[in-house]
Design a protein around this nucleic acid. Structure first.
Lengths: 270, 270
DNA sequence: ACGGGAGTTTGGTATATACAAACCTATATG
DNA sequence: CATATAGGTTTGTATATACCAAACTCCCGT
């Protein structure tokens, strides 16, 4: 008695359609930066009147805010986002270590997690030599493809290969630079290597002139729960520094975070 | 229990009920920290089956995440929250100045905005002497009452007194310490004083042993768009330092942010 | 094995939703 | 100045859908 009205996606659990619609509208607003009413109508395929009602409601609930004629996501989401971070174990366990690593290296350090096949930045810290702010802004705002970054690849390397295949099947390969990985075979080869050496590198695969080194963080239950990475311009991140010193530091940091997670888990197992 | 067409304020706009319900569920999850299914059912007065459908949908959309039997807000909210901040003028215009001020003073510095009569922290930075981390965690996560904090009072002082009255009418006075303001008259008197001297202080009114100094930030259109404050233990924040040096620094920072806002507005007037 | 609490699925129905089209309201256009 | 046009809001209404209750499954403790 499974399929009655063979509908979309997995199985047929009931869903609240209005929430899906609201979600689409929020996504449109986030994507379009500061869209006007009609911008939103054009993005989502819903009648004007309906969109209007949704916007009214979302604004009333604090999910969006209207300033002048433009819509934006609302500050309530800042509060909620903060709440998520503080409840996420890896954030609490890793925040200090990210800062320490940023100070040691002087570069950008990111603490990320995987979410629905993409990479989300939970926390970041910049050392005193860190550059390319714009890029990092974008990175914080929107999820990234896992195969684009060192931290992402480090997490992929821990996943079941079947799962990796599913993620890629779903997303396809998006080429960002001439060095971006664009086929499964290359990716799988690299994942093997990452597993062997314990860390991943990103050699101008996402942004030209930028390299990074990342490694996965595993929780007490032995599953990956995130990754940490150092990012810097190729000019500074090269030679022995790139190939052994930084990887060493990154792995050390990951290790400390893992220990923190372990002890945190002991403190409140429930 | 509720009146049928409970339309607040303007006219009777249509609303999507499902979004309101979803919002209530999200709020419950945030409030209850890591509730189980039944916890949520008890918090919101909706039948089990319905709650189930909502949770399925919200999880599917990334607004919440289930780990084991517990529900939490989902990482999508982190991304969205970050996006809000980066699109908020005062955040972009003030971030650097907050950090500078934190370095200069060595204490906690907060950049906040008003939202529905409450105070939301957009950004914060801690100097090297900053303490009482727990308190600041809470502060970031949940909105605060404006009359509890220096930054909040600084904003209130810029509001129309009628608006202040409305906000208080709605919220009532919640006493946190023996120094908390608990009546309108005292509040209004203080607001006058704040307007006169250009900054507000919080003398252990929210947390015992903690003082702060804050001032409002006005945008190019001459409306308040936020506030900045310095917070430190009473032992360090006293005498001339408390009464003139720090206020001086805070007002200077606010001024710089206002200039940034001005020029930012000129750059892209759209 | 049994009871019961926790969570999930299902049927039916009241109603909330979403469309279309009418309706305003500014801003351009002739 | 009149008119056109796009941007935004409101309303009537058929129908999709959200909601409850109750049946059901699963899991845990005894």
């Amino acid at each position: 008695m499974n399929d009655m009205h063979a509908d979309d996606s997995t199985g047929s659990p009931r869903r609240i359609k209005s929430i899906q619609t609201a979600s689409a509208i929020l996504e449109a607003i986030q994507y379009l930066e500061s869209p006007t009413f009609t911008d939103i109508c054009n993005e989502v395929e819903i009648s004007k009147g309906t969109v209007h009602t949704y916007l009214e409601t979302l604004e009333n609930e604090g999910f969006i805010a209207k300033s002048g004629k433009k819509y934006q996501l609302g500050v309530r989401l800042v509060t909620m986002g903060e709440s998520v971070r503080n409840q996420t174990d890896i954030y609490r366990a890793g925040q200090d270590e990210v800062e320490t690593l940023a100070e040691k290296t002087g570069e950008w350090v990111h603490l990320t997690v995987e979410y629905q096949g993409q990479e989300v930045t939970l926390y970041e810290s910049s050392g005193d030599r860190a550059i390319a702010m714009d890029y990092h802004l974008r990175m914080r705002e929107s999820p990234q493809y896992l195969y684009h970054t060192a931290a992402g690849k480090a997490m992929l390397a821990c996943f079941d290969r079947e799962r990796v295949r599913e993620i890629i099947d779903q997303q396809g390969f998006v080429q960002r630079t001439e060095k971006t990985i664009t086929d499964l075979e290359t990716l799988f080869d690299e994942l093997e290597q990452i597993q062997a050496q314990g860390y991943a590198v990103n050699d101008e695969e996402e942004v030209r002139g930028m390299r990074s080194v990342g490694t996965a963080i595993t929780g007490p239950d032995a599953t990956v729960c995130g990754a940490i990475s150092v990012t810097a311009p190729t000019s500074r991140l090269s030679g022995d520094y790139f190939e052994s010193e930084i990887p060493e530091l990154v792995m050390e940091a990951a290790n400390i975070i893992e220990v923190n997670l372990e002890t945190a888990g002991v403190q409140k197992p429930r």
